[in-house]
């Protein structure tokens, strides 16, 4: 299988007053055509900034450096802003956590969706409307013809997220970035939306990057997994490897601290606080303060990338 996206040595830094915040610190990963990659991390892990950097959608205080960001044979780092705009929303589209703030409250949802097609000159107005109505039906919105002419406030939270998905998918993108798409939704609705994203992914044979803080959600959707901590990838693996042999102490601890039904034992908790990117230890491993398996060298030397299998890589001194 070929890669749809190949990111090498990506760094994103923000400068605030006199402090340098390394939000994404030298990470490399690939996404295969037609597969789902889940990026898991807690706050400050850089999971969101990573994908925003790929799309070059970060605040002006930020700086992106990368060896390459290759998307379907083109290096996104070398494209002009105008060329980037053609890619965003067309070949790569995004859905966000809060569907209400991503939709324009004053424009009927049908028009908001069909405009995507018109911007990218993919259809004439009549076709655009037809395709929009078909898409609304696809994402599970009942009576799409009437719904076409309604405003965002007339939709419930789950329905709005369906509208967002319709809008993201109408241009038939090759890559969908879903940034915490179900975090603000109720659990029963979350399950429906995840199933919908999976269905659309399989149907359109597109690739999906799912950004989430929820390990369970991540594993349910993924073909491949990435775990991030303090701007670094600490573990990446296929789903099967992840479920059978999760190895990085952070990943193991994160699995242990996720509440499950029918738990007999106590939750494992990770001591300490989420990383403070303003004063992160750049010498050693960023997780060292919270790690229960830390060794002396962990706080002095940056852990190397260790290949546990061709597809399973972690950054930890334990496995050297």
């Amino acid at each position: 299988m070929t890669n749809i996206l190949d990111v090498q040595a990506l760094k994103t830094e923000f400068r605030r007053k006199n402090t340098l915040i390394r939000a994404v610190n030298n990470i490399s990963f690939t996404i295969k055509k037609g597969s789902v990659l889940s990026i898991v991390g807690e706050s400050g892990s850089g999971k969101s900034v990573t994908m925003h950097s790929v799309l070059r959608l970060i605040p002006s205080t930020g700086k992106i450096v990368a060896e390459k960001i290759n998307f379907m044979g083109r290096d996104l780092m070398r494209l002009t802003e105008k060329e980037m705009r053609k890619i965003r929303g067309d070949q790569i589209s995004m859905i966000f956590q809060d569907p209400m703030s991503s939709l324009n409250p004053t424009i009927k949802i049908g028009r908001q969706i069909s405009e995507v097609l018109l911007w990218h000159h993919k259809a004439n107005p009549k076709e655009a409307k037809e395709r929009t109505i078909r898409m609304l039906h696809e994402v599970g919105i009942a009576s799409p013809i009437e719904r076409y002419n309604q405003y965002p406030f007339e939709f419930s939270g789950g329905m709005r997220q369906r509208v967002m998905i319709a809008m993201a998918l109408i241009g038939e993108p090759r890559l969908l970035i879903a940034d915490e798409p179900t975090t603000s939704l109720d659990v029963t609705v979350q399950a429906q939306i995840l199933a919908l994203i999976k269905k659309m992914q399989e149907q359109n044979k597109m690739s999906v990057v799912l950004i989430t803080h929820n390990l369970a959600v991540a594993t349910m959707m993924a073909d491949e997994m990435i775990v991030m901590y303090a701007g670094q990838i600490v573990e990446q693996a296929t789903k099967a490897e992840f479920l059978n042999r999760a190895s990085h102490p952070y990943t193991v601890a994160l699995l242990g601290s996720t509440p499950k039904l029918n738990m007999k034992e106590r939750l494992q908790s990770i001591p300490g606080q989420p990383p403070d990117l303003k004063n992160i230890n750049l010498e050693g491993c960023p997780f060292v303060d919270r790690c229960s398996a830390k060794m002396e060298r962990c706080s002095r030397e940056e852990p190397p990338a260790v290949q546990l299998s061709p597809t399973h890589r972690i950054r930890c001194w334990l496995y050297t």
Binding site: P249, V252, R266, S269, P271, S292
Partner: peptide, 17 residues
């Protein structure tokens, strides 16, 4: 889970500066 299990401190931790 896996073949590696890492002991995790079960005490109430405080941490943080």
């Amino acid at each position: 889970m896996g073949e590696f299990t890492i002991p995790v401190n079960k005490n109430i931790d405080s941490g943080g500066k």
